[in-house]
C-alpha cells in the first residue's frame, strides 16, 4: 500500500524523465515511513522544468562519457606504442599532423582528384544505394517466392546457401567479364553481397506467418495481391528488416572491393590509392570515416525498421 504513494515522491527527487532507472532502492526506505505519503501533494509541483533538464543532462552524460573515456585511453596507448622513430604505423599525433585537413574539413575541393572525404563518402553511398536498393527489391521478391513455395525453397535454398559464402572480391572478375564495364560491375558486386541475407530472412519471415493470419486471409477471401500487401509483408516485416540491416552492413563492407576496380573518387578507391602511395595516415582517417558511416547506415535501417514494424512485433 505504501509503495504506491511513495513513487511520485521519488520522481522529483531522483529523475523526472526516467523514474524506473533509479527507483529500485529508494521506495522501500521511504515506504517504511507512512508519514512520507502526506508530503506527496506538496512536493509534486516542485517537479519542474529545471529538474527535468538536469536529469536529461545526467542521462546524456551517462551514455556519452564512458565511450569518450575508452577512446581517450585507446588513443593514449596507441600514441605510446607508435611514438618512436621507425614505427610501422603512424601515431595519432602524426596522423593529425599529416592528415588534419581530411579530418577537419570533409567537404573541400582542391581539384578533380583532391577532394574531401565527405564527397568521397557521398560518391560511395550513391553506389551502395543502387546496389543495396536492387538487393532489397530482388531479395524481398525472391524471398517471398522461396518462403511461399516449398518446392522453390527445396530447389533454391541450397544454391543460396552456397553462393552467400562467396566473398565480394571473388565476384569481381566475373562481374567485370559479364558487364565489360566497371560502373555496373561495382554495383553488381554490392548487390550480390547484400542480397543473400535479404532473401533468406524474408523467406524465413514468410514461412513463419502464423496460421491464424492465413486463416483470417482465407475467411476474408483475400486475393494473392491483397494477401501479399496486407498480410505477408507486414507479418514478415521484422524478419525483412533484419535481413536489410545485415544487407546494408555487407554492402558497405563490399564498397572497398567494388571501388578497387571502378577507380574514381569513392572512399574505397581512396584507400586503395593511399596504400599505393604509402599515405598510411590518410588510410587511418578513411577507415574512421567508413566505420562511422557504416554505423550510421546500420542505425538508420534499424530506425526505419522500428518505425515500419511498430506494433507488429507483439500480437
Amino acid at each position: 500500500m505504501n509503495a504506491m504513494p511513495a513513487r511520485p515522491v521519488l520522481i522529483d527527487t531522483a529523475s523526472g524523465a526516467e523514474p524506473a532507472l533509479n527507483s529500485t532502492s529508494p521506495p522501500k526506505s521511504r515506504a517504511a515511513k507512512p508519514s512520507e505519503t502526506k508530503v506527496l501533494p506538496l512536493k509534486t509541483p516542485s517537479h519542474t522544468y529545471g529538474a527535468r533538464i538536469s536529469s536529461a543532462l545526467r542521462e546524456t552524460a551517462a551514455t556519452v562519457i564512458p565511450p569518450l573515456v575508452v577512446v581517450a585511453v585507446m588513443l593514449l596507448v596507441w600514441q605510446l606504442a607508435t611514438d618512436k622513430p621507425g614505427a610501422a604505423l603512424p601515431s595519432p599525433m602524426k596522423i593529425w599532423a599529416e592528415a588534419s585537413d581530411l579530418i577537419v574539413s570533409p567537404f573541400f575541393v582542391y581539384g578533380p582528384q583532391d577532394i574531401g572525404l565527405g564527397w568521397r563518402v557521398l560518391t560511395s553511398l550513391e553506389r551502395v544505394a543502387y546496389g543495396f536498393g536492387l538487393a532489397a527489391v530482388f531479395g524481398i521478391a525472391l524471398g517471398a517466392i522461396v518462403g511461399q513455395s516449398i518446392w522453390a525453397m527445396r530447389g533454391l535454398d541450397p544454391i543460396f546457401q552456397v553462393l552467400r559464402t562467396v566473398p565480394p572480391l571473388a565476384w569481381l572478375p566475373i562481374s567485370l567479364a559479364a558487364f565489360q564495364d566497371s560502373a555496373p560491375s561495382a554495383v553488381f558486386v554490392i548487390f550480390i553481397t547484400a542480397v543473400w541475407p535479404v532473401i533468406i530472412n524474408t523467406a524465413v519471415g514468410i514461412r513463419n506467418i502464423p496460421q491464424d493470419y492465413r486463416n483470417v486471409a482465407e475467411v476474408l477471401r483475400l486475393n494473392p495481391l491483397e494477401y501479399f500487401w496486407r498480410i505477408m509483408i507486414p507479418s514478415a516485416a521484422p524478419y525483412i528488416f533484419t535481413g536489410l540491416r545485415i544487407g546494408i552492413g555487407l554492402s558497405w563492407l563490399a564498397i572497398v572491393a567494388a571501388e578497387m576496380l571502378t577507380g574514381g573518387v569513392g572512399i574505397g578507391f581512396f584507400i586503395w590509392d593511399a596504400w599505393n602511395s604509402s599515405r598510411l595516415s590518410d588510410i587511418v582517417v578513411a577507415l574512421f570515416y567508413i566505420g562511422v558511416v557504416g554505423f550510421v547506415l546500420d542505425r538508420l535501417v534499424a530506425f526505419i525498421g522500428r518505425v515500419a514494424t511498430r506494433g507488429t512485433a507483439n500480437a
Binding site: V216, E218, A237, T312
Partner: peptide, 27 residues
C-alpha cells in the same frame, strides 16, 4: 472453401497487430 458468409471468431482473436482496431474491422 472458407468465406465471409461463415465468419469465424478465432480462439486467440487473430487480429492483425499492424492494423488499428478500426482497420482490423474495416479490412
Amino acid at each position: 472453401d472458407p468465406g465471409p458468409e461463415r465468419a469465424v471468431v478465432f480462439q486467440n482473436h487473430s487480429l492483425l497487430p499492424w492494423l488499428t482496431v478500426y482497420e482490423n474491422v474495416h479490412i
